[in-house]
Design a protein around this nucleic acid. Sequence first.
DNA 1: TTCGGGGCTTGATCGATATCAAAGCGCGAC
DNA 2: GTCGCGCTTTGATATCGATCAAGCCCCGAA
Lengths: 253, 253
Amino acid sequence: MVATTSLKEREVFGNTNARPSERTIDVSQSIPGKLAMHGAVVRTRRGQSLSLALDGAEMVYVVRSGALMLRVAFPDEMRQVVALLYPGEVFRAAFAPPAASARLSSVGAGEALRFRWPVFSDLAATNPEIERFYNDAVARQTARAAIHTAAVGRFDCRQRVATFLLELALRTGVRAPCGGLDFEIPLNRTDIADYLGLNADTLSRTMSRLRASGLLSHPERNRGLVRDVAALAALTPAARALMGLNGGGQPPA
Amino acid sequence: MVATTSLKEREVFGNTNARPSERTIDVSQSIPGKLAMHGAVVRTRRGQSLSLALDGAEMVYVVRSGALMLRVAFPDEMRQVVALLYPGEVFRAAFAPPAASARLSSVGAGEALRFRWPVFSDLAATNPEIERFYNDAVARQTARAAIHTAAVGRFDCRQRVATFLLELALRTGVRAPCGGLDFEIPLNRTDIADYLGLNADTLSRTMSRLRASGLLSHPERNRGLVRDVAALAALTPAARALMGLNGGGQPPA
DNA sequence: TTCGGGGCTTGATCGATATCAAAGCGCGAC
DNA sequence: GTCGCGCTTTGATATCGATCAAGCCCCGAA
């Protein structure tokens, strides 16, 4: 029930040498301070599952750093990562479909605030700032989900991968010395494939091609560097929509 | 600003001879009565567009009957119907991604309540019943969207079509004399294809095959009859999830 | 009645992506 | 160090669904 008071961004966004102010987006500001006083702080490791219910109560999570991932699974090994939740976004257990083996897990290391829904709901009802935060977060997430659905339903393989990379870069990237964006890729290939509705082999091939064409490089494992963000954006029809949603964070010239 | 008081379901769900009580679901009850006193009633015809903003104010719609459809479009003719909104569901303009040519339109004839978001938001803040209605509707829609995303990303053609038909049947169907479900199909082939992320030709072929196998029949144009709902459900991995979401409405034996 | 048009269906073909299989690589255990 | 395992990459092949094109059905107009 007691919250940590200050959040050290650099710890959780990987040990980049960029100062926080250089991050493309800084949403941590938008999480109302009062929330931290009532929620339990959960520090997550990569892959860790977060429970959707506790003692019969529906749970709510507010992402502070890192990212969460909602995956649903159906019979016959069919899995789909339905959403990636970045800092400032909110997950309520009722967002997960029933009877679909929904699992909420952490992508990389991070931190979230956890509440029981009845408590959170009361907080929102009595505090306009929290109410507004929740409603806005939900709306933003819904809009991002719409883009994701369209990508998965209509884009070809390269467009999907470009969409994913652009989203990650805009969300979590830092300006690299060369002027591009440097970002962590906290998902493994299988998870990315599940997010994009692709086969892992096909995904690997596609990323190899992007690397071969010079659009993408891997300064180190689990890290991506896009030198020419505009060129990457040109590969996905959703570029403008993504930039619009990501707080207009540094639209590449 | 003045609302109609009573809603005649039979008018808007097609002229079936079923009594309302026989409908699989009746969500109209769950819309708080107070909402109707503050919202403008919009009667919609098939294909009619609903504006996302009016005089600079963000709009909200609450579906009372019929259905709404949110479509996004990207360059190169890429369209995706991102969500179908059934009675009792809510749409806020901020749910639509920016710069993605989002369009909210009516599917068939129906009725919706329209609000300005600031007004709706105030109503919710001061009225717990409305607050709860909104939050629950959003959660339910998010869960349905998750299933839809998974279907579009992972299911093959037949599974997608089966999912769509089952969803429609459970949502809007009435028990047919033969024991199956009879329902209106208010979308044309192109719209269904856009919803499922399929080509219209492929969709047509798939539905033909379902018809040939006896699972589906068209008592009349724009109407579907599924005699053996369980057999249809067996075709989609999402059957259990859909039934879970649709208020447990008549899960076929 | 014929005509014309839009939506739907169906067939033939092609291509993108899934699938299967093998090899490469990184990394921790020992 | 070496082994072994899991993740990733790459190649060869199969397949499902998109595309293109023609024909059909329904309906309204003339």
